[in-house]
């Protein structure tokens, strides 16, 4: 009994030490995660001279409006154009990905067809295929058919999103019972209508998660737009950001930080609002996968 109590006591003591270690490490990591973004945001408000003198400061400067003005007179970096293009592409991509992935997943889940197994195997096989591998052929084909600089070439491939199909299928298996579908059939609903009006609502949580990832993935994609988009009016946000690496901005540190902030802030804001869903989405996606 006594020894047990001692053990318990010492355990609490070690628990406190343990807990302290956890908090210290986590706080250091949190600072590490936030620090670059804080420097970015603060420096966006400071003048080049201030940054030159001391590149790090936690006190915002007063040059935000000046930096905005300088940045907006440089016509290369057009965050609004980039944002517009990225929005169009990412939103369309998201809708196509989520809708058609659900449809395809439903086709695999709900029906028995001869080539189903082969088809599912194919999806598993190409699930992880990066754009790098198909890029040369894709680019040359687009080039020959004069399809470079065409946003559709970035949007339409989203119809075939194997990873999302896989996820959706896994979700359907847990969430949808064929009874519901059967009863809809008995009520005389067509298959397509059944899918749209009964199956889709059931899939909403999975669709939301996948929509976030599809959107972020498309928004952050740099490789394909860089290869396909030649005209500045078609540049997406990441390509616009890459322009900040260019010569023109090297004189204006404040502007570089401001430009970076403008590209990162929308994401940070959306993230802060949706973080609960995103974090649980990451967890969900991995366990399901």
């Amino acid at each position: 009994m006594a020894s047990n109590q001692v053990a318990l006591h010492s355990k609490t003591k070690s628990d406190i030490a343990f807990k302290t270690t956890i908090y210290i490490v986590c706080t250091i990591l949190a600072i590490l995660s936030l620090f670059p973004f804080v420097v970015m945001l603060v420096n966006a408000t400071r003048s080049t001279a201030q940054i030159q003198a001391h590149a790090v400061s936690l006190i915002p400067g007063s040059s935000l409006s000046k930096n905005i003005k300088i940045l907006s007179t440089k016509k290369t970096f057009q965050p609004l154009v980039g944002m517009k293009n990225s929005l169009i592409i990412s939103a369309s991509t998201t809708i196509l990905t989520v809708y058609f992935a659900s449809l395809t997943a439903y086709a695999i889940f709900a029906y028995d067809w001869k080539l189903k197994k082969a088809f599912f195997g194919l999806i598993m096989g190409i699930m992880m295929l990066p754009g790098t591998v198909t890029m040369i052929g894709f680019y040359r084909a687009c080039y020959q058919f004069h399809l470079t600089d065409n946003k559709l070439m970035l949007i339409l491939p989203a119809i075939a999103a194997p990873m999302t199909v896989f996820f959706m299928k896994q979700y359907l298996e847990g969430a949808l019972s064929m009874d519901i579908v059967e009863s809809a059939r008995i009520d005389g609903a067509g298959e397509f209508r059944t899918f749209n009006s009964i199956v889709l609502p059931i899939m909403k949580p999975a669709m939301a998660t996948q929509a976030i990832f599809a959107f972020v993935g498309s928004w952050n994609n740099y490789f394909m737009p860089r290869i396909l988009m030649n005209k500045q009016k078609n540049y997406t946000m990441p390509i616009m950001v890459a322009l900040l690496n260019g010569d023109i901005y090297k004189t204006e540190f404040g502007c570089i930080y401001l430009g970076l902030s403008m590209t990162a802030l929308p994401l940070i804001i959306i993230y802060l609002f949706l973080s609960k869903y995103i974090v649980s989405g990451v967890a969900l996606g991995s366990v399901k996968g």
Binding site: A107, Y111, F119, L129, T134, M135, I136, G137, L156, I159
Partner: peptide, 26 residues
């Protein structure tokens, strides 16, 4: 079962055009 094919058609088409064809061409 025909609906299975039907619903998988968009995916298959997009796959053929945007993945398989570029791979073969590559």
């Amino acid at each position: 079962s025909k609906y299975g094919y039907l619903f998988a058609i968009p995916f298959i088409l997009a796959f053929l055009i945007f993945t398989l064809y570029p791979i073969c061409y590559t």
